[in-house]
């Protein structure tokens, strides 16, 4: 499935969460977010879950991909 991808690699918190928030305001059905550190992963996961989304996590070449979809 094609999805909108937000590249938040290298960003320090809370920027990845803010980017995710802004993306979800536009694409309410869900987005993929690429991050590269555990803090961003945890913060985005918590934010997405609190906002009523399901989150799947994949790892690819050291990057973390969060697949965020409407429940």
């Amino acid at each position: 499935m094609k999805a909108n991808v937000v590249d938040a690699r290298g960003r320090a918190c809370p920027e990845p969460v803010l980017l995710t928030k802004k993306a979800l305001e536009v694409y309410k059905e869900g987005v993929d977010v690429v991050v590269d550190n555990v803090t961003a992963r945890e913060n985005i996961k918590r934010f997405a879950k609190n906002s009523g989304y399901n989150v799947d996590v994949k790892e690819e070449n050291g990057d973390i991909i969060l697949i965020i979809r409407k429940e």
Binding site: K2, N4, V5, D7, L19, K22, A23, E25, V31, V34
Partner: peptide, 12 residues
């Protein structure tokens, strides 16, 4: 300004 398009990576 956020512009994500299908399957396009956007440097945020």
């Amino acid at each position: 300004t956020f512009k994500v398009k299908g399957d396009v990576k956007v440097e945020g």
